[in-house]
């Protein structure tokens, strides 16, 4: 039920004309694979507060533990704003994703200007990688790619 409402909220917040980012999680041939924790955030290019767009973690972990224990492994995101975010955050928190390409809407209310979009991934018993892409609002196409824990990160309008 909650999932449905989150999806609806996500759709409502992202009009068809808004920009989005496609994040590719590579398929890795390793003995013990766990889906990575991923954080996506935007910072003004001239410096300023980070705004978290999405964070994918073990949001459905059972018991008293809300699945946040390992979020500090997303160490850049944690330092730049994750640690002061109240979780779960509506429209931001989500479950971990399987390998493949995932489309995430960027906030429609970003003021025009220059930003940097960051995607950070950290995997249990695996590595960690951060990929950054310059983001212009209104959005222009841009892309970058990771080498190990992330594939292509592509901004599209």
């Amino acid at each position: 039920m909650k999932k449905t409402s989150l999806l609806i909220a996500g759709l409502a917040a992202a009009p068809a004309s808004a920009a989005s980012v496609n994040v590719t999680i590579p398929r890795l041939n390793v003995a013990e694979y766990h889906r990575p924790y991923v954080a996506i955030w935007v910072e003004p290019a001239a410096g300023g507060t980070a705004r978290t767009v999405a964070v994918w973690y073990d949001i459905k972990k059972g018991g008293a533990e809300p699945g946040t224990k390992w979020l500090h492994d997303l160490r850049s995101w944690w330092r730049k704003g994750g640690r002061s975010l109240k979780l779960p955050a509506d429209g931001v928190s989500g479950a971990t994703r399987a390998p493949g390409t995932h489309k995430v809407a960027l906030p429609a209310d970003l003021k025009p200007g220059q930003y940097t979009l960051y995607v950070e991934a950290a995997r249990e018993t695996g590595g960690r990688e951060i990929v950054s892409v310059p983001l212009t609002v209104p959005a222009k196409a841009a892309s970058a790619a990771g080498k190990s824990e992330l594939g292509a990160v592509t901004i599209s309008r």
Binding site: A64, E65, T68, H72, W78, R83
Partner: peptide
């Protein structure tokens, strides 16, 4: 063991 912690039972 670490200096930066997340979660509710650190």
């Amino acid at each position: 063991s670490a200096t930066i912690f997340s979660g509710t039972d650190a």
